[in-house]
Design a protein around this nucleic acid. Structure first.
Lengths: 132, 132
DNA sequence: ATAACATATAAAAATATTTTTATATATTAT
DNA sequence: ATAATATATAAAAATATTTTTATATGTTAT
């Protein structure tokens, strides 16, 4: 029964639902969450870890960055996540989204040297640049 | 988001999953849970209340007894409950079931006067009596 | 090598949940 | 009316989770 309870426990926290909602449109690294949710980094890492232990997200290391994304390898969890995402209107995380976009834009505008930005971040930055 | 988190919070506790599993085969009153799970009554009432607030169970008063049953009026919750029930093998609550059956049998054998047993309890007792 | 950075982890503090114990309320029996 | 029973609720104690603060680890830049 432990697997079930820890799965639901992972989903029973607002901060973690905000994380899943942010991941809806693609993977993010820890510092993106920190900026988007305006939280200190260990707090974000703590929640990412809860989600990871429940197999709701997976991580991938890219240089010194750690990227998190939704783990949809299990049907039931996948269904749960979809149900959750569709029940949280975008409106509810608009502040997070706004801060995230600003952060990504700032990253892009900072004209940081190539080696300070990982590949997937650069892709997102370019995407943002072409929009504005 | 509160409705979602309190729904998952309600499902994130082993005691409450045991309650749902016991309710799989029909409604029960508080004293049935107390006997089945071998717990003090306020503890059972506390968990029933959490489930009720999350609209996972509903209650019905019958004389001095309070009967609880699964609330399947909402599709999503219904699906969640079914998913949970099918993921908990009967084996895992066999002790609860055993104590419940013994309690119901004892109720029946006690030859309690009619007015001490509510209608739905009597139905279950008769059912048990005919089995043994 | 040293510094800067991203992230993880540990320990302490703050907060929330659960459990227990005691008591209140409502219903039915005597 | 009074006693007995079923359940609810409140307060205190126990436990678990979350947040913060400080520090460790690993990676890349200088």
């Amino acid at each position: 029964m432990d697997e079930l309870t820890s799965l639901f426990k992972a989903l029973s926290d607002e901060t973690r639902l905000r994380i899943l909602k942010l991941l809806e449109s693609g993977d993010l690294c820890v510092c993106d969450f920190v900026a988007a949710m305006d939280m200190v980094q260990p707090r974000v890492s703590f929640h990412l870890n809860v989600l990871k232990k429940a197999n709701l997200v997976k991580d991938r290391k890219e240089g010194k960055w750690m990227h998190y994304s939704i783990d949809d390898s299990d049907m039931f969890k996948r269904f749960l996540i979809l149900s959750v995402l569709e029940r949280i209107p975008d409106e509810q995380i608009k502040d997070d989204k706004k801060r995230l976009d600003e952060f990504l834009k700032k990253k892009a505008e900072g004209a940081l040297p190539d080696n300070m930005v990982c590949n997937s971040c650069r892709a997102k930055m370019n995407n943002l640049r072409s929009k504005s």
